[in-house]
Write a protein that binds this DNA or RNA. Structure first.
Lengths: 196, 196, 196, 196
DNA sequence: ACCTACGGGACGTCCCGTTTAT
DNA sequence: ATAAACGGGACGTCCCGTAGGT
């Protein structure tokens, strides 16, 4: 890997948590160069603008988060089991500094920065598609009740998990994430079909 | 109401949506001055600092939101009915510009601005207390199953509704709020005791 | 005088020698704010751009220089005497830091900055007009030979004095200015008519 | 001539007019690179620093100018004739892009860049020496009046010509150079001794 | 009480001269 | 010999907050 790419990656890796914690406006280029250990002018060669850097940072943060969320899912075949692992990852393992990059980016770019917002929306759609396809596969394989609307399952999972993750940051010991996890787990049980 | 108080209220009413939409850093005093139709100097006659204004703005925004959320709840006696009205308010009526002030403030002040954060946390606690006391009353009056942990009910309601409200802003037609509402409603039915 | 005007004047007075010495490109806004004892942002209210400041600075520098060049000229009536005082001022008294602002500005803005260049050209024309009118008055009053072309007198005076002033900066002891002064003096004598 | 030397010469030939027109600070390495048709890295293979390039550029520009100024001077033997040819060259033939490199460099390096300034001063001294030796030879050969101070003749010539050249750039049609030339010519006549 | 004007400071973008890798 | 990378700094702009002025 070339030196420039290395530096670029370092910048992104250092910038992503900052953007995620402080938001686009709340995070200055100065903060980033200090975190990355280089000087202001050096950024220009790698990212022409702050928005370009924020885009790359979100991409990185979401990629990292997705890796955690989807980990170990392919170790099981059953759709419900897959989803449970996903939930467990979200509840117990996901911990990008500053909270869920997707949710943070949505609230941060509510006004302005359409390019970043678009990227967040795409990430969101991918996430939904992934879960939906698992649900559908499960239905095809008689693991999940056929009368269930896949979109409803996905909506519950994502909404509840995201909401709990945000609120958990306000009160560290409230245990919202665990509660959300338990609720989803029992919901998944309620839509599962008994396997032979 | 004196002229000064009137002006002060106008400032707050104009500032609150701005702060809610753009965040603390993303919203300049200039923006507020323009929205409120006065000049910079006057603003500082009413609020000594930007943070003081943001505090008042959040207080206002949350007060407005609470009014919507709790509307019509005292028209019924049954606890489950009360909660259902609450959910319906959240799903169909709550619409402060920029989304839920509580969630926005949490994510916005994740880093820095502890005073605002504290106020958000207090608001959050009040909300939880309100709902918890309704659940407990319901249990006392045999309207809700006694084996249910009140905190779990509240956690589900708030987490799911907040999560859905955020995601709804990304995809206008996804209907996350409605889905979340339906889920909570059926959950409430599942914990309700049949009434004589 | 208002506080703002005072500050503005201080900025100009400090900026003019810097621009004159280091040229437009060689002089940074940072240099100026340091010299003027204020901060970067404060300049914005007084001068929207570096060029605007440079314009004001040249105007000031040239005004100061003109005051020196024309001093004591009205103490005598005879045109030749007037011109001799002018030459003496240029040789012995003119000393704006960095040399003649007119010549410096001409060479500095040879490429680009047409607004500044225009101002320099106007200053130059005024200077020529002043001297020409003195020569013409002298001819009208029979103090200067009628066969002399006024423009030639002015051209000699200005060219020689400016040239000498530049070269004097290279070699401090070369005495170019004094030599130039002596030459012009004797030339003026040669075109003077004997007075009754 | 080797390929490297050829490139080096091309760089100098392209850089010299740029430096002369825009000054040291006003002229970027990027400008030079573009004019010379090569890449930035290559430039630094030939010149270790911008100042080194500027030195070479001045040397070139002055060499070119001197060649024009001294042209045809050896076609006559008489000192006054020699000087007149010199003046004619300065008035009618000298035209390095951006004006006289000597004067431009003096004003440009008034503050900073002592190495370049030293080179300009040396060039200036050479010029003076050349003219002074011609005057002295003329006096030795009874072509020029013995009571004339050679330094005075040189000072007049150089000061007047340089001054006129600068001012000519402000007003193209003012004809300062021609006027200066005529004045010097008649001055030279006035110090010439009649030849047998 | 309102508002213009000023203060200090930071920020984003961009460019520059130079060096290091290739 | 090319090109990317780097440190540094410049310019212009905005911002928050304070005074002076009406």
């Amino acid at each position: 890997m070339s030196k420039g790419t290395e530096t670029r990656n370092r910048i992104i890796a250092k910038a992503a948590p900052l953007f995620n914690r402080k938001g686009f406006e709340g995070c200055s280029m100065q903060d980033i160069v200090e975190a990355a250990g280089l000087e202001k002018g050096s950024l220009y060669g790698h990212f022409p603008t702050k928005e370009a850097l924020a885009l790359a940072a979100f991409e990185y943060a979401w990629h990292e988060t997705c890796a955690v969320l989807t980990a170990r899912m392919d170790t099981v075949a059953n759709a419900v089991e897959k989803l449970k692992i996903h939930v467990d990852n979200a509840v117990s393992r996901a911990s990008f500094p500053g909270g869920c990059p997707l949710l943070n980016t949505i609230t941060d770019t509510d006004d302005g920065h359409p390019a970043i917002r678009r990227m967040a929306r795409d990430a969101f759609r991918e996430w939904r598609s992934l879960l939906e396809s698992i649900v559908k596969e499960g239905q095809a394989r008689k693991e999940i009740r056929a009368d269930i609307e896949p979109a409803d399952v996905v909506a519950l999972m994502i909404s509840l998990l995201e909401g709990a993750m945000v609120l958990d940051r306000l009160e560290k010991k409230s245990g919202f994430r665990e509660k959300a996890g338990r609720h989803v787990m029992s919901y998944l049980d309620s839509i599962a079909l008994p396997q032979a």
